[in-house]
Amino acid sequence: MNEPIYSYMKLGTIAFMSFPAIMNGEGPILETIKKLAEDPYFTAVECSWIKDWTTRAKAAKLLKESGMTVCYGAQPRLLTTGLNINDLDENVRLQALESLKEGLLEAEELGAKGIAFLSGKYEEATKEQSYEALVKSTKELCCLALERGMQVELEVFDYDVDKKSLIGPTMYAKQFAQEIRWEYDNFGLLIDLSHFPLIHEGIEESILPVKDLITHVHIGNAVIDPALEAYGDAHPRFGFPGSVNGQEELVKFLRTLLETGFLNKEKPPVLSFEVKPWKDEEPEVVLTACKRFLDEAWRLV
């Protein structure tokens, strides 16, 4: 592709994955945001919860000054606490929902236009009841978001490997998204290249059925051999030993998104790295390697 990549997308990274020390809502949050805001490669950044309100206010100021598009991932609010948004225990479900509502208001404070989250655990025996609980929670979250002019996105995760989330296979995600969209047009799906191998699907299989429901994308890598390091939803760097998403897969991913019109010049969407340093790998080095990898893939599209 000869045209600049920025003509078709806003490039970002998930701050709490690139720099996992801040995933719990604490740690060097301001330093991390400042570092990303000073990097001209990025025109978007994805943040998450910031527990201290003074730190959050300073982060909001930094983000406003940066001119970057801000996104908010509420996944850590659920994954680090064990909360389940489709829990069949009503008290637990409401706790999870309350946390996501708090996240929505926090996202607004940081300058984000929406919030992304993931479904809770998949259990075959209670699949239908869990689905109904998820519908109930999501509609309530979408209602609050709509009142504030904001978007809600559900990220599609694996259902039987690592996170074992209800949503889930692509066709199930499609069914769910269509049901929510029937009532709330501020809802969409977030898909991640690194999750496709984990849900046992190919690139077109994971994109084409939901092409009109996708509002946000991540790119990353995965290891699907349980005998190897970083197996599961660990988001290792591109080129990691035994990983399955290489240059060919990323090029095909980008081409498919272009062909479906998701990547476009009229309203460029956010595309972010979801790559996490493995063990003692240096976050800055891994992030720079991601940039090189994407730049080369775009040249080949």
Results as ranks from 00 to 15, higher is better:
5 I>N: 09
6 Y>F: 13
12 G>Q: 09
13 T>W: 06
14 I>E: 02
16 F>T: 00
18 S>Q: 12
19 F>M: 05
23 M>Q: 07
25 G>D: 07
25 G>P: 05
25 G>F: 08
30 L>Q: 11
33 I>W: 04
33 I>A: 06
33 I>H: 06
35 K>S: 15
36 L>N: 08
39 D>R: 06
40 P>K: 14
40 P>N: 15
41 Y>K: 12
41 Y>Q: 09
43 T>V: 10
44 A>S: 13
45 V>M: 14
46 E>N: 14
51 K>W: 09
51 K>Y: 11
51 K>E: 13
55 T>Q: 06
57 A>K: 12
59 A>M: 13
61 K>P: 01
61 K>N: 10
64 K>R: 13
65 E>N: 12
67 G>E: 10
68 M>L: 15
68 M>T: 05
72 Y>E: 02
74 A>F: 09
74 A>R: 05
79 L>W: 06
79 L>G: 02
82 G>T: 07
84 N>C: 15
86 N>L: 01
86 N>R: 00
88 L>V: 08
88 L>G: 11
95 Q>I: 03
97 L>A: 05
107 A>I: 11
108 E>D: 08
111 G>N: 14
116 A>F: 05
118 L>R: 03
119 S>I: 01
120 G>S: 02
120 G>R: 02
127 K>F: 10
127 K>I: 09
128 E>Q: 14
128 E>K: 15
129 Q>L: 15
131 Y>T: 02
131 Y>F: 15
132 E>R: 13
133 A>S: 12
134 L>V: 02
134 L>D: 01
134 L>A: 07
136 K>P: 01
136 K>E: 12
137 S>L: 02
143 C>P: 01
150 M>P: 02
152 V>Q: 05
153 E>Y: 11
155 E>M: 03
158 D>Q: 04
162 D>S: 13
163 K>D: 11
164 K>P: 03
167 I>L: 15
168 G>D: 00
170 T>P: 08
171 M>W: 14
171 M>P: 00
173 A>M: 01
174 K>R: 15
180 I>P: 04
182 W>T: 15
183 E>F: 05
184 Y>C: 04
185 D>E: 15
185 D>G: 05
186 N>P: 08
187 F>E: 04
188 G>P: 03
189 L>G: 06
191 I>H: 04
194 S>K: 05
195 H>F: 04
197 P>S: 12
207 I>N: 02
208 L>F: 10
210 V>I: 15
213 L>F: 06
216 H>T: 11
216 H>A: 08
216 H>M: 12
220 G>L: 08
227 A>D: 14
231 Y>T: 06
234 A>E: 11
235 H>A: 09
238 F>K: 11
240 F>A: 02
249 E>K: 10
249 E>L: 00
250 L>S: 07
250 L>V: 11
250 L>K: 09
253 F>A: 00
253 F>N: 00
255 R>G: 03
257 L>V: 13
260 T>N: 10
260 T>W: 06
262 F>H: 03
265 K>E: 10
265 K>P: 00
269 P>K: 08
271 L>C: 10
273 F>H: 03
274 E>I: 00
275 V>G: 13
280 D>R: 10
281 E>G: 12
281 E>M: 15
285 V>T: 14
290 C>M: 03
290 C>V: 01
290 C>E: 07
291 K>V: 06
292 R>Y: 09
294 L>D: 04
294 L>Q: 03
298 W>Q: 05
298 W>G: 04
299 R>E: 12
299 R>Q: 12
